[in-house]
Nucleic acid binder design. Structure first.
Length: 820
RNA sequence: GGGGAUGUGGUGGAAUUGGUAGACACGCUAGCCUUAGGAGCUAGUGCCGCAAGGCGUGAAGGUUCAAGUCCUUUCAUCCCCACCA
């Protein structure tokens, strides 16, 4: 018998599949369509480790099983190639980002091929290819045309290490997510996408998506929709209004003070002479703080009195106006009213000794006493007191009435606020899609005409960022200097490039029509394949990529380019693979495990793929185990041996004695594996295949392949059911079983429920809830005979002896329970 | 502080509608075998106990003939967001 040698069979089949093009997808209407997509990888200088590979293994198992089940499967792959790592690596190694990317894509593609994934490589795309970013630029201009791309001078997040600005989403705890540098605030003129205009839809449309609750929650959290009202206070002694946002209009009668953010435009206007220097000093102090410092100072409230007062629109009370940095300039109106019914305000008024009044009390009288004694900030709903005509009402119902009452006096307006900010997309770096805008002294920002796209990246001698807030492209006069498309006069190109997330906001559409040179994609083709049926990716994309891609999809929908407005109907968030020590795998920790090395050691891609799935539920994290990999390798070896023994066996006659048992085992396996795959229970599907194999080994020992037709069906089914997980060994065995076509385009085996019925059943007998016996009985036994058999069972009888049976519970063909 | 998730043997993990807890695998123990291999095969392996039996799904209560699963309370861990009014 040939030995199972993955090193020999795997590369051979990989080549055959590619040569025969069995994974090419076409718009074939005769079969149901299925678009399976894994987030396209960033080809970095490092190699992939087994953690990355899990993502693709899950996608491939879905794609392969769907293909065998008769679906027309689109399973493409490409490269998210723009971005800082390639550029930084090029600078460090004195080469070009183009060369770095070319090299890493080749290496990544080799690794993916080595794992035997069923990609349609004719659809390969690369976001840094001018033929791709031409359409990224085209889509930028679409947003520009629709008023969704604009330039504004703003205080932005500046990364002093990578020397570029960053989106809010790329700042984690005050630090840049890539470089780790403490982010500084810089006033720069930048390009933004108006994602805030879509905030409501982005939040609402989550309801209909088949995504995990946690990812939906993260998105809702990030969008941060909150409903409330804007209330108008008036500066005492003038008619200057101060508008504040609140979700708790019901607490208006408790208002004790007003706080303006230090950057609020009214600060300078209302501050009294006496307080002027103190206020200015405070504003200067907070302006100099990074976000990180601000967060560190969070524990202690700071602030300064402006000397001015405001009038409460509800009761005309005079309230001191303060300036404090716990109020954020960018949210709501940059001003709030403070009271005792909010933890932060409570802290503030305690520190600065501002008088306060309780206007909401809990139902419990004991608690109400404590609240009225101002023992703590009561922030829940309750009964209103000291609230004019609203006293005695419940806070949650009084809220809208108070807003309506104030609105009648023109002092309030219902309002929805969002935490999400517009998406800052300019980057002062080289390796991205140039923003296709020409600045003309006469005509302003003019879009590059469509027929002049792409605006290509020029080759440079140095890619070093300048650090002055301008991209390296600004140092290339041939690139910068051009003529205005409108007036023909001298003009300058925009030198910022786009955030890499712009490229990944539409790549899933490009896969539907990757070679189109007339449009980003053909509408019919896009609608044939999309939305993506199974989108598989890590949780790192929960906020940024998934939010941006949904936003762009909605814009394209609104433009009429597509008729759907959500890109990914179901999202599969795989769990991370940790190193065997339970830590995250990372190059710096030196604990990464490369699939290539494991393949080199002889395990083979198939064993690795099995281990990726068998290690636990696909959506939960798990630590890699090299011993476990030995286990999946052994399993494949057993399958290999079994099929070869079957092939080489020479049964004398078609002895059908074991036929039924073999058929039951086979149909049971088909049912379990099919259902498990349907529910994405890959680990249990593989367990079922192992059990099936173990059963077949036992049956083989009993009849030595004598039941010819049953064994033929069993071995073929085993190979087919295993094919989505271990494509190489199954392909090899499939051919050995005499097939000429690939197993991966063979028809998935079907089970018949009527063949699953065994001759005997096992009935559990309980007495007072405790299991006392197992009875093996004929499958066609009646209830009466089963109960009777249970009663006379020696062990059960012992427990029933001398007692009255008060109750008998019978679960058909499964269980008898006596209560005595 | 807000949100989301998870707790089951030595380990990873299984358990339709409540119906034999621990499938499958790793590890471990014993034996067999031999082309001495990354072997393979057989048997065993939740805990206590010689056994009968008892105890067992983070903890404590509850419902039920029967609870990993349902209800109440609680503890721990992980992830995301966080002075968002």
């Amino acid at each position: 018998m040939k030995r199972y040698n993955p090193k020999e069979i795997e590369p051979r089949w990989q080549k055959t599949w590619e040569d025969q093009g069995i994974y090419h997808a076409t718009e074939d209407l005769s079969k149901p369509e299925r678009y399976v997509l894994e987030y396209f990888p960033y080809p970095s200088a490092a190699t992939m480790h087994v953690g990355h590979v899990r993502n693709y293994t899950i996608g491939d198992a879905i794609a392969r099983s769907m293909r065998m089940q008769g679906y027309n499967v689109l399973h493409p792959m490409g490269w998210d190639a723009f971005g800082l790592p390639a550029e930084n690596y090029a600078i460090k190694t004195h080469t070009s980002p183009q060369a770095v990317i070319k090299d890493s894509t080749q290496r990544f593609k080799a690794q993916l091929t080595q794992m035997g994934f069923s990609y349609d490589w004719t659809r390969e795309i690369n976001s840094s290819d001018p033929e791709y970013y031409r359409w990224t630029q085209w889509l930028f201009l679409l947003l520009f045309k629709r008023g969704l791309a604009y330039q504004k001078e703003a205080l932005v997040n500046w990364d002093p290490v990578d020397k570029t600005v960053l989106a809010n989403e790329q700042v984690i705890d005050g630090r840049a997510d890539r470089s780790g540098a403490v982010v500084e605030k810089k006033a720069l003129k930048q390009w933004f996408f108006k994602i805030t205009e879509y905030a409501d839809r982005l939040a609402a449309d989550l309801d209909d998506l088949d995504w995990s609750d946690s990812i939906k929650a993260m998105q809702r959290n990030w969008i941060g929709r909150s409903t409330g009202a804007e209330l108008t206070f008036t500066v005492d002694g003038s008619d200057t209004p101060i508008t504040v946002f609140t979700t708790r209009a019901d607490t208006i009668f408790s208002a004790a003070f007003i706080v303006l953010a230090p950057e609020h435009p009214l600060v300078a206007k209302i501050t009294t002479k006496a307080q002027q220097s103190a206020v200015e000093q405070y504003a200067k102090q907070t302006a100099g703080k990074t976000d990180l410092e601000r967060q560190e100072d969070e524990k202690e409230k700071t602030g300064v009195f402006t000397g001015a007062y405001a009038l409460n629109p509800a009761n005309d009370e005079k309230l001191p106006i303060w300036v404090a940095d716990f109020v954020l300039a960018g949210y709501g109106t940059g001003a709030v009213f403070g009271d005792i019914h909010d933890e932060r305000d409570f802290e503030f008024l305690q520190k600065f000794d501002i008088p306060a009044r309780v206007t909401v009390i809990p139902d419990d009288p004991e608690e109400a006493k404590k609240v009225q004694a101002k023992a703590y900030a009561y922030t829940d709903e309750g009964i209103l007191i000291d609230s004019g005509e609203f006293s005695g009402q419940r806070s949650e119902t009084a809220r809208d009435k108070i807003i309506a009452w104030l609105a009648g006096k023109q002092m309030a307006q219902e309002k929805v606020n969002y935490k999400i900010r517009d998406w800052l997309i300019s980057r002062q770096r080289y390796w991205g899609a140039p923003i296709p805008i020409i600045h003309c002294p006469k005509d302003g920002a003019v879009p590059v005409p469509e027929d002049q796209l792409p605006v290509k990246l020029p080759e440079l001698k140095s890619y070093e960022p300048s650090g002055d807030g301008r991209s390296p492209l600004a140092r290339v006069p041939e690139f910068v200097n051009t003529t205005c498309p409108k007036c023909g006069g001298p003009a300058q190109r925009e030198t910022d490039t786009m955030d890499g997330f712009a490229c990944s906001s539409w790549y899933f559409l490009r896969f539907a029509d990757p070679h189109n040179n007339q449009a980003p994609f053909d509408k019919a083709k896009a609608e044939f394949w999309l939305p993506v049926d199974d989108y598989i990716g890590g949780a790192e994309h929960a906020v940024m990529h998934l939010l941006y891609a949904r936003f762009w999809t909605k814009v394209m929908h609104d433009e009429g380019l597509i008729s759907f407005d959500e890109p990914f109907s179901s999202l599969r968030n795989h769990g991370m693979i940790l190193a065997p020590d339970g830590q995250k795998m990372s190059k710096s920790k030196g604990n990464t495990i490369s699939p290539s090395e494991l393949i080199e050691q002889g395990y083979g891609a198939d064993s690795i793929r099995l281990m990726e799935l068998f290690i636990g539920p696909w959506d939960q994290m798990a630590a890699w185990s090299i011993e476990g990999l030995g286990g999946t390798f052994r399993f494949l070896q057993r399958v290999w041996t079994l099929v070869h023994e079957y092939k080489e066996a020479q049964p004398v006659a078609n002895n059908a004695a074991k036929e039924k048992a073999i058929l039951i085992a086979t149909h049971t396996a088909i049912k379990r594996v099919s259902q498990d795959i349907h529910e994405l229970g890959f680990n249990t599907a593989i367990a079922a295949l192992m059990e099936f194999t173990n059963q077949l080994y036992k049956l083989k020992a009993e009849d030595n392949f004598a039941a010819v037709s049953a064994w033929k069906f069993a071995t073929a089914s085993l190979v087919q059911l295993l094919a989505p997980f271990a494509p190489h060994i199954t392909e090899e065995l499939w051919q050995e079983l005499g097939h000429t076509e690939s197993v991966h385009i063979s028809a998935w085996p079907l089970w018949e429920d009527k063949l699953l019925v065994a001759d005997t059943i096992t009935v559990v007998v309980q007495v007072n809830g405790k299991v006392r016996a197992n009875l093996r009985l004929p499958a066609d036994s009646s209830e009466e005979s089963i109960v009777a058999a249970a009663k006379v069972d020696a062990k059960v009888a012992g427990y029933l002896k001398g007692k009255d049976i008060k109750k008998t519970i019978y679960v058909p063909k499964k269980l008898v329970s006596f209560v005595v």
